[in-house]
């Protein structure tokens, strides 16, 4: 499972059609006004935090990304 998620080759990932499926599904997944999914993350060089702990006192901007 994690092997699929952490693909090694971008061209193979695209030729599998996975990119089309993910971009195509996005508009129907979760909407403004709905509850955000909770989850646990590691604050880099800090502690583990749940998103629900972050949004308890303040709003949260989540910008997803990697090196590119």
């Amino acid at each position: 499972m994690s092997g699929d998620y952490n693909y090694e080759r971008f061209d193979a990932y695209v030729s599998s059609g996975e990119d089309e499926r993910e971009f195509g599904a996005f508009p129907d997944l979760l909407h403004a006004g709905e509850r955000a999914p909770d989850g646990e993350l590691l604050l880099l060089d800090g502690e583990r935090v749940r998103l629900s702990e972050l949004w308890r006192r303040n709003g949260v901007v989540l910008e997803f990304g990697s090196f590119t």
Binding site: L30, E34, R35, A36, W55, R56, G59
Partner: peptide, 8 residues
């Protein structure tokens, strides 16, 4: 952007 309380 998730509002305080966790609403999208």
């Amino acid at each position: 952007v998730l509002d305080r309380g966790g609403t999208i």
